[in-house]
Amino acid sequence: MNLFRLLGDMTHLLCIVVLLLKIRTRKSCAGISLKTQELYVIVFLTRYLDLFTMYNSLYQIVMKLVFVGTSIGIVWYMRYHKVVKQTYSKNEDTFRHYFLILPCFVLALFVHLDFTVVEVLWSFSLYLEAVAILPQLVLLQRSRNIDTLTGDYVFLLGVYRVLYLLNWVYRFFMEIHQIRWIPWVSGFIQTALYADFFYYYIKSWKNREKLKLPA
């Protein structure tokens, strides 16, 4: 494993810690999109089917279980926790998931490595992960007040994707020497979606102002 990949995974873990910190200590999920969090549950469940079918390193098993477990936990908090669920920005979180799920599934039916359940769902999970942040970005745009932890959470998610891109560049030259269209294109699109957010996040940080996205 190269340094970019390791840093990417650690940043992804940090994202989850930041979000759980907000939920558990502040008892708030204000500004967090339940739609995006539910999409992540679907992404992890469909991608990690191989937990049961092929050999994984201990690192992979632990990380996969952490991602599945925490994503379900976060959705549980947002939907059912007595206090937390009342802070959910329900009226602003209006993006319809199935507008994302359905096209990604159809795309996976046509674009995959092998026409098997595991391969189609693997492709589906990559396509869905690429666009899963959209409901969150829309919610941020509608929020008057973006608190620091929410801004940091989305920023770190973007950083994790940038590190994965660097990891692929490294792996292409050092290990693989082959083109991997499905993860690369979806990963690139996923990262590009953060460009606008990055711009405003860094600007607000430089000017020491509160983060606000133009509507």
């Binding site: 990949r5 995974d9 992804h12 191989d50 092929m54 390193s57 992979q60 990380m63 996969k64 991602f67 490595l113 693997w122 994965y164 990891n167 692929w168 792996r171 290990e175 693989i176 082959q178 991997r180 993860p183």
Partner: peptide
């Protein structure tokens, strides 16, 4: 192989 398909990634 699974590695070349980047299946070893998360």
């Amino acid at each position: 192989s699974s590695t070349s398909d980047l299946k070893d990634e998360l």
